[in-house]
Structure formats: C-alpha cells, structure tokens
C-alpha cells in the first residue's frame, strides 16, 4: 500500500482534541482507548502516535483516530507528524492494537456480568436514595450501554452521576471497557430528582 494514497482528514473537536478520519478502516469495527503512553506499549499504531511529542491520549475506532495533545504543542505542527505516523503504520501492515492488549479485554459476556455486579453492589444501592436506578442494556465488544431510570431520568445532575459516579466505578472495576453510552431518553423523565430551574 502506498502511503501517499492514504487520505486523512483532520477535524478539530476542541483546542486539545483532533479527530483524524482515514479513508479506510484502521481498526475495523472495533475501538480501543490508550489513556497513556505506557498503555500503548506493544500496540504499534499507538506507539507510533505517542512517539509524536505532545500526544497525550489516543482513541482508535474503525476509521477514526482521536488524539488529545498537551497545551505546549500546536496542531499545525503535530498534525502533520500524526498523519505521517498513521501512513507509516498502514504501510507497515502491523495491527493497530496488539493481540495482547485486546486479549486483556474481557469478553462481552464477562463485561456484562461484571458491570451488572458493579451496578447491583455499588451504584444502585446508592442512587436508590434519590429514587434512581441504572440498568445495563447491552455490551457490544467492549462498549457498554446503560439506561438511567426513576429519579435519574431527566435529572439535572445525571451527567455528573454518569461521568463521575457510574463510569468511574465501572472503569475501576473492569479495565478494558470501551465507551460507556447512556441511552436514556432523559426528555421523557417524569420524576427527575433535580430539575433545572435557574435562569
């Protein structure tokens, strides 16, 4: 495969984050998050990207690579280096994520069981005080789908509870979990614990 043929589009998500979309799958139908340079060891694509000075986080998902950078470097500078690293990786034919890294991810059935355990033992007993409940809807690969009900559905603080309570507990208990997606229809909540009321 010629590196020059590979088309990569960079789309800024924010000042610190840029999403690179490649014209072909990089990690077909799968996603994996590398939260640090250490976590990238053994995974060739992530190793190449973390070798670029200033890259602080890498998420690979099918044909997209989302990169976080530190404040000390500028996108026009490292964007080109990231593009070159992606092209070099595709030309090498290496796997994006090492078998070992992926092998450490529990199966979806194992994740399902462990997430349910976290919800039953830690999360739901606590949010029951607010009339809330969190249900596990499904696990696909390592992506977890949850739904919030009762006082959590439509609650003005549901984002806080999800990000800093539920996500945190699940990730601490089950390393290797990918995205945790809230599929709640919050607009349909009938009895949210907190309702925004301040103009």
């Amino acid at each position: 495969m010629s590196q020059a043929e590979v088309s990569i589009t960079g789309e800024p998500v924010s000042a610190a984050v840029c999403r690179f979309t490649v014209d072909r799958p990089v990690y077909p139908e799968k996603s994996f998050a590398f939260m640090s340079k250490e976590a990238a060891a053994g995974s060739p694509l992530a190793e190449r990207l973390f070798a670029v000075d200033g890259v602080s986080r890498v998420v690979v998902s099918h044909d997209q690579i989302t990169v976080n950078k530190t404040a000390q470097v500028e996108w026009p500078v490292i964007g080109k280096l990231i593009g070159a690293a992606i092209r070099e990786h595709l030309a090498s034919g290496d796997a994006a994520v090492s078998d070992e890294a992926w092998g450490n991810v529990p199966s979806s059935d194992e994740i399902k069981e462990q997430v349910q355990q976290v919800l039953d033992s830690e999360v739901n007993p606590s949010i029951a005080d607010h009339g809330g409940v969190v249900r596990l809807i499904n696990v696909e690969e390592n992506t977890v789908f949850i739904q919030m009900g009762g006082g959590c559905q439509g609650c003005g603080q549901a984002d806080v509870t999800l990000k800093f309570g539920i996500e945190n507990s699940i990730r601490a208990a089950i390393p290797g979990v990918g995205a945790i997606l809230d599929v709640t229809d919050h607009a349909a909540g009938r009895n949210p614990y907190y309702t925004p009321s301040k103009k």
Binding site: E122, V123, I127, T161, F164, G165, N168
Partner: peptide, 13 residues
C-alpha cells in the same frame, strides 16, 4: 447537595 455516588469517587464529587 451530596451526589448519590459521592462516596464512590471522593476526588470528583
């Protein structure tokens, strides 16, 4: 008011 899950993540809540 305390978040219902505050005890699980005292650094963040």
């Amino acid at each position: 008011h305390p978040n219902a899950l505050a005890r699980l993540n005292p650094a963040a809540l």
